[in-house]
Nucleic acid binder design. Structure first.
Lengths: 345, 345
DNA sequence: TAAAAAAGTGTTATCGTACACACAAACTGT
DNA sequence: ACAGTTTGTGTGTACGATAACACTTTTTTA
């Protein structure tokens, strides 16, 4: 039963003062070669780890973190992210933090830029966590964050470059392949498959493309399927979707690449046909469809965990100086009517 | 930008010393009615919460936690639990803890009782986390833990009573239903389904039973399926399984309730028939089968997360006095050949 | 060679909480 | 009325890490 080593123990073992040990630990210089050697030697031998508790106690600055995500009022998907953020705020409530959430309009790149611009003007901003729906605008923001030495984190969507300090998300290409495999198991050869992209306003373009590429890559190994793609935004759905269905009929399976899955069974009801269906995200309306048997699988993007892990990473980096991986990929959860409850807790 | 309230702030606002505030906070008496009133009033007004960080700093005791789980050498499934435990040990390495792992033979209840008995004899044991494979023996242990005021936690298997302080696991009944739904989607009506229980030595009896009940409950809604059950232990597999298959042939789908799924495709190879198959756990051999297309789905019990969350809960209870829920149910993950990698990181 | 600058080292206050201790004021009993 | 007890209150120190500060020793410069 050995007690944890403290800086005092190290100092004593090395025959120096705690001041010297501290200078070695923080590489603050002003240490002789001799002291340096003996302290590092003792440090390695005794496996010293500074007590994070004591460290944060002394360092009583108030860290400021801002979170910027799409408005949940415009798209319900983001509500769960908000919940994840709020959970972390509670969890770290005992620490001196000032965390504020801001929302932008997911259909307006300018709204993103504008709020982003305001946020980085904040005095003493320590970290910014955001959802980079718009590639160009996000990169502009990131560059400014980097020059100002502000810690950056993204989640949900990913950027192709390496500018961000930390990213939390899913591999969308694999996610498309998962959907493909699920559908493949449900249908017969020579079936007809429709890929439907329903977006607010063509912003998730990269997002949807990656899923489609994964999906297609899977079916390339099997030539006997006919696959067609329809891309439309939310408003066009009522007008364009029925036409598409009529022309491509009969459709054996649908792969919907966004969370607006619930639109499809609704629209198909008049048709009377029963198709296999795989889509994204556990929105209330999607879950209802799943339970009613109107769709087969949902792929869970785990927005809550993505957001909370992202924020947690930034916080721990700030207060514990914990190193965080540049990229963290979460599992791709397959959800059907029977395990959906287990994800909703 | 408001700083966190400290005990000093409260004392100042109430016009008393921090000692008095402290006595009010800890109900240690020796406080006049007048002081009591004004301090509680200020306390409520300013929404004071003591800093748990500073609190633990003072309390420099070394906590002792023991973990008792089935030997990974006897059953590979437990290897990942071990990994989860070790990750947490690293994560909390900076704190004063003494965590030790002990293993018992999953086929011998006596081995569990014996080591359990030894562990609770330990002086100053603060918490015990264990896998309660054996109901009777586990309850005996739990009662002793309770009388000795030792914090208790279980994971993976659950007990029907309420004696344990904290449990982390999955709902096995639902898990059986998930398997049922997966199989249902893959086969035609009037198919024949086999439920196979392969156990080391009939210890997971409750475990397997719960899964079977969930599975059956799903198919009760559809009368047109023929379901047969085979229960055997690992050693009997070679001899009894082929007979069973021959008698019940053709079998359209298999539901294997334990992690020994990999045995089945192997045994069926000589048969030449292709059946649907759903089983449990991401053992290396199971993953190989999944990738080769020899089985359709695996249900992931997430042993690593179960173990690590369980241990983390106990630790946080001890050092931060964080309240932990009596029961924590993890999601039931559905795994196919395309998302399996995302769970193996 | 003396003065100035730099390098190296130890001491100490601080963060917020907890608790022992000291001390004063208000009571008790003889 | 005075010693002894109880009650109430404030002060001081500890926990471990950190960094400012003070001090000594060495090196550089004029």
């Amino acid at each position: 039963m050995k007690k944890k080593q403290t800086i005092k123990d190290i100092a004593h073992a090395a025959g120096v003062s705690i001041g010297t040990v501290d200078r070695v630990l923080h590489k603050r210089g002003k240490v002789s070669k001799k002291s340096m050697e003996i302290v590092t030697k003792v440090l390695n031998e005794l496996d010293y780890k500074p007590n994070p508790i004591a460290r944060t106690l002394k360092n009583n600055t108030i860290y400021s973190i801002k979170v910027l995500l799409p408005d949940p009022k415009k798209d319900h998907y983001w509500k769960r992210c908000m919940e994840g953020i709020n959970e972390i705020i509670v969890e770290f409530g005992a620490f001196d933090f000032e965390i504020e959430i801001y929302c932008y309009d997911p259909s307006k790149p300018k709204s993103f830029s504008k709020i982003g611009e305001q946020l980085i003007q904040t005095e003493n901003l320590d970290a910014l966590l955001f959802v980079p729906l718009f590639e160009k605008e996000s990169n502009t923001l990131l560059k400014k964050l980097n020059t100002r030495q502000i810690l950056s984190g993204t989640f949900n969507s990913s950027l192709s470059n390496n500018l961000v300090d930390q990213h939390t998300g899913q591999d969308l290409y694999s996610s498309g392949r998962v959907a493909a495999k699920l559908i493949y198991d449900l249908i017969k050869p020579h079936s007809r498959i429709a890929i439907i992209h329903i977006d607010e306003a063509f912003n998730n373009a990269i997002h949807m493309k990656q899923k489609e590429q994964g999906f297609s890559s899977f079916f390339k190994e099997y030539s006997s399927f006919e696959i067609k793609t329809l891309t439309l935004n939310s408003n066009e759905f009522q007008s364009k979707f029925p036409d598409f269905v009529e022309q491509f009929n009969p459709i054996d399976a649908f792969f919907i690449t966004t969370s607006k899955v619930y639109e499809v069974p609704e629209a198909l009801k008049s048709q009377g046909t029963k198709s296999k269906m795989v889509g994204y995200d556990l929105l209330l309306r999607n879950v209802e469809c799943l339970k009613k048997g109107e769709m087969d699988f949902l792929i869970h993007q785990n927005p809550k965990i993505q957001a909370s892990l992202g924020l947690k990473g930034l916080i721990e980096k700030l207060i514990f100086e914990k190193e965080i991986p540049k990229k963290r990929l979460l599992p791709i959860d397959i959800v059907n009517s029977e395990n959906v409850e287990s994800y909703l807790i």
